[in-house]
Every structure is written in C-alpha cells, then in structure tokens.
C-alpha cells in the first residue's frame, strides 16, 4: 500500500519534472489553459452595445472555462486604442478582445496600420444588417417608392443621417445608391453622433432617411414616429418579421453591415485557439447568449477561425470600395 503510494508519487512527480524541463509543451498547456483570469478587451465604452455584447460573452465564458473573464474597456482614439491593445497583447490566450467593424474601415482612412489581418481570428459572434427608415407619415410605402423618389430628386435634395461622416451606415447608404446607379452623394449625408440622434432628427422632420440597424431604430418605430421600409440583408430579421428584405423587393444587393467577433493577437498557439473556439462555440450556442442577443434585437451569426478571417476580409474589401466611392479613403 505504502509502496504503491510512493510509486504513484514518484511517477507523478517525474511527470511534473519532465514537463517542467521540456517547458510549456502544447499538450501540457492545453490541459492547463486557462490557469488564471482572462482579459477581454472591449475597444468601446461601458454601457454601449459593444460593451454589452462583450459582457454577456464574458459572463457565459466564465462559467465554461472556470476562470474569471474580465471585460476591460480600453477606449480612446475612436476605437484605435482598444484595437491596438488587442493586437499588441502577449499571444498567450490570456488577453483576447472584441473586434468591431471599424477595424475594416479605419485603415482605409489612414488612421491606423491595423487591418483584420493583424489578429488571430477566433469567432464571429454578431452581425447586424442596415435597414432603411423613413418618417412614419412619409409618403413612401415601400423601398421601391423611396428608390424612385431618390432617383427623381435632384442631387442633395434628400438628406440622410445616422452616424458620422464615413461611418458604417453612411457607407451602407453609399453602397445602395451605387447599386441604383446614382452618385454616392446623391442623397446628402448629415453627420450625427450615432443612430439615436439621427432617428430623433428624422422624427423632428429635419432629415428624410436614416439607414441604421433595426435594434437602433426600434424605440422610434415602437413610438410610431418612424417606419422601416427594408432590411439590407439576405433574410428577414426574426425579431422584426414585418420588415421585408431589399432583395425581396428590388433584387439581390450585397450590403455592408456591422459585426462583432472575438480575436486574439497574432500568433496565438493552436491549442489555445482550439480551447477558445470550443468555449466560444458553447457560448454562442448557450441559451443565455441567444436570449440576450434577441432581447436587444442583435443578430447572431457564427463563423470560426479561417472562415471568420475570410468574413473580415470580405467586409474589409466592401468597406474599401464604398469608402473609395464616397471619396473617404486615403489614396
């Protein structure tokens, strides 16, 4: 009995010794990772949609990995600071981050050298397509009527708002105008501090069109001040089944949308990637995550690793085209 214990002890001790001599070999770290808290960097401030998404992911992850997952809001530089922090973190799997669509936009304007390729893509978690909103009592009954009205109006007559100059919804509008064969500035863009003030100005009658995601437009639609004519996505949003897609009414159109996904710095070890992607898949499939995202009206979409990388590259290409067309990209 005693000899058995001793042998067992020696055996286990030698394993420990061996592995500590060999160093952190993959098999060993896989069984051990994560052995301390994980930091999830959110490049945007507390209380916003990205912050909420990061927090729900972290909360469910925490249950799955058995280690605390702390959300750290690294704000500043319009997202550049946080995205930089994710890319420059030590590639040990203890610092990962939530990438947002801005990473596919900022480098076109020459604001940063970071591109989607500066990261180890792990998983896409959320995609929200733009929808086209008009005032509730506006004469346009569907997107076709609006499109005709836009074509008929002199350039610059109609105004649209919903984000800053060159922001994601501006680009979505530019993309749509181009597909109609119009100039990018045929509808004048009124820069605003986000979708909510844009929707307010729509209700106040200051502007004609607000392209933004449906969850952003929801309060005003519910208040009976605005209506949504079409969603620029292949399928209807299950949260808003009454809003038809643009494809249904006017034929296929590829549009830019916002997305959020988890990534790590470049050079994340394969075994850490395996572990994280497996956990993130569990998070994605969890009831908590699904419930939370649907309660906020956020769309969910999954893609992992290389597929997520391809998704980002495609998004990057689309953004580049739209920004060049709108004259926003740096040559």
């Amino acid at each position: 009995m005693t000899s058995f214990t001793r042998r067992g002890f020696i055996a286990s001790a030698s394993t420990v010794l061996a592995s500590s001599i060999v160093g952190v070999k993959p098999g060993f770290s896989q069984s051990n990772y994560p052995s301390r808290p994980i930091t999830l960097i959110c490049p945007w401030g507390a209380g916003g949609g990205t912050d909420a998404t990061a927090r729900i992911i972290a909360q469910v992850m925490e249950q799955k990995v058995g280690q605390p997952v702390n959300v750290v809001n690294r704000t500043g530089g319009n997202g550049v600071v946080g995205h930089t922090a994710i890319s420059t973190a030590a590639p040990d799997g203890y610092t990962i981050g939530l990438l947002t669509v801005e990473i596919a936009m900022m480098h076109w304007q020459g604001l940063t050298d970071l591109t989607p390729k500066s990261y180890t893509p792990l998983s896409l978690m959320n995609v929200d397509a733009p929808a086209i909103q008009v005032k509730a009592d506006s004469p346009y009954k569907n997107i076709k009527e609006l499109a005709d009205a836009i074509k008929a109006a002199p350039p610059g007559k109609l105004k649209a708002s919903g984000t800053g100059q060159g922001g994601i919804w501006h680009l979505a509008l530019v993309g749509w105008l181009q597909s109609l064969g119009l100039q990018p500035n045929h509808v004048a863009w009124v820069p605003s501090n986000g979708a909510a003030p844009g929707m307010q100005d729509l209700a106040a009658g200051g502007i004609d069109i607000v392209p933004c995601s449906l969850p952003e437009a929801r309060p005003m639609i519910d208040a009976g001040r605005a209506k949504s004519l079409a969603i620029l996505a292949p399928e209807r949003n299950p949260q808003f089944p009454n809003v038809p897609t643009l494809d249904e009414q006017m034929g296929p159109h590829k549009s830019v949308g916002v997305w959020r996904g988890i990534a790590g710095p470049k050079g994340l070890p394969a075994d850490v990637q395996d572990k994280l992607v497996a956990v993130l898949k569990e998070v994605y499939d969890s009831k908590e995550y699904k419930d939370f995202m649907s309660s906020r009206g956020f769309g969910t979409q999954w893609a992992e690793r290389a597929a997520y990388g391809q998704f980002m590259d495609e998004s990057d290409r689309q953004m580049g085209e739209a920004m060049k067309a709108a004259g926003l990209a740096k040559a």
Binding site: A46, G47, G48, G49, D51, A52, R55, A196, P197, M199, Q200, A203, R218, P219, M220, A223, R225, F292, S295, R296
Partner: peptide, 23 residues
C-alpha cells in the same frame, strides 16, 4: 421614451435598460 440619451449618464443607463429587458 425614445432611447435617446439626454446626457452621458442616461447614455449608459439606456445600455443597462436594454441589458435588463426594459427596452
């Protein structure tokens, strides 16, 4: 009423309202 923040504090509060299903 409209999900429009009146100031920086309510901007954060709106996020919490959504998070708690009080849309």
């Amino acid at each position: 009423l409209f999900g429009i923040p009146g100031d920086t504090i309510t901007a954060i509060a709106i996020g919490v309202l959504y998070m708690k299903g009080l849309n």
